[in-house]
Amino acid sequence: MDEHENSISYKTYLLTWFWLLVLTGLALGLGYAPINERLKALLLVCTTLAKILVIAAIFMHLRYERINLILITLAPLILAVILFSFTFPETLGNATHLIRVR
């Protein structure tokens, strides 16, 4: 990757910073938008994934790494989806018995 590193200009970093701020503004707008909660959650997940992809690809230089390294960085996301899908069904229906409210 070393041969690529010097080729990333400061202008690219500034443009990336700008787009990250735009995506942050978008996420903030979604947070306040009077829309369906599920749709809001879906759109926030999409915005967040777009932001982390930009940070990983450009700031962390992952786009210049070998595919082997890129693939292992996906492990936390894949395992998080598995963990979520194993635990979330427990919350469906009337699940308030699982929590004590003071």
Partner: peptide
């Protein structure tokens, strides 16, 4: 600060 850090690496 993340953008500035990327510039520091550069």
């Amino acid at each position: 600060s993340s953008a500035v850090m990327a510039m520091a690496v550069g």
